[in-house]
Simulated assay, not measured.
Amino acid sequence: MIYVPNQLVGAPVGTDVTLHCHVEAYPRAISYWARDGAVLLASKKHGTESAENGYRTHMRMTVRRLAETDFGNYRCVAKNALGEAEGSIRLYGEQI
């Protein structure tokens, strides 16, 4: 099961924004962030963290120095032997 607290997130260009996703899976799932069909790995642009507590995982991804090209849909995905689940977050631009 995946729970996304905020499915619509707005932030101005040039700022940092953190996206959150909660995963509950047994057996433990492999969890990751994706955008446009590609897995997002930790980098200077995308900082990823996850905190595990038993069969629960809280995933966070910070998108740094937002640019117009960063706006769009992000997915948090969890896969285990029993199946796959995903949550979607739409990131949009706000005026300062």
Score class of each variant (00 low, 15 high):
H20D: 08
C76M: 13
H58Y: 13
T57R: 10
G47V: 08
S43A: 09
D70Y: 10
E24D: 07
E84W: 01
S43H: 06
R56Y: 06
G83I: 14
A29I: 01
A78I: 04
M59T: 02
T18Y: 04
E86N: 12
D36W: 05
A42E: 03
P27A: 07
L19N: 01
V63R: 01
A25Y: 08
A29M: 02
K79V: 13
W33T: 00
A38W: 10
L82M: 12
H58E: 05
A25P: 04
D16R: 07
E84K: 05
D16T: 01
V17M: 09
K44G: 14
V63L: 06
V77W: 12
R35L: 04
L41Q: 15
N80Y: 11
H46S: 04
N53V: 11
Y26H: 13
E49Y: 10
H46G: 03
N53H: 14
A67K: 10
Y55I: 13
R60T: 14
E24P: 11
A85V: 03
N73T: 12
H58C: 02
H58M: 06
V39Q: 08
M61H: 08
E86A: 13
G87P: 15
A85Q: 06
L41P: 07
N53S: 11
V77F: 10
A38S: 11
G47C: 04
Y74L: 12
G54F: 00
V39N: 07
H46R: 05
T18I: 05
W33G: 00
V77D: 03
L41I: 15
Y55F: 12
R65P: 09
P27I: 06
G72Q: 06
R35T: 06
E24A: 11
V77K: 05
A42T: 11
T62G: 03
V17K: 09
A25W: 08
Y55L: 14
A34N: 02
R60L: 12
C76S: 02
A85T: 03
K79L: 07
V39M: 07
C21D: 00
Y32R: 03
L82K: 08
L40Y: 09
G47P: 09
L66F: 15
T48Q: 02
L66N: 03
V39C: 13
A34V: 00
D70P: 00
W33H: 00
A51L: 15
D36V: 01
C76L: 07
K44S: 09
K79M: 06
A42G: 04
A38R: 12
A67L: 15
D70C: 09
L41D: 13
G83S: 12
V77M: 13
R64C: 07
A85S: 14
V39G: 08
A29E: 09
K45P: 00
A81F: 10
R28K: 04
A29K: 06
V17F: 06
A78V: 03
T62F: 01
H20L: 12
C76I: 01
E24G: 13
S50N: 10
A51K: 13
L82N: 12
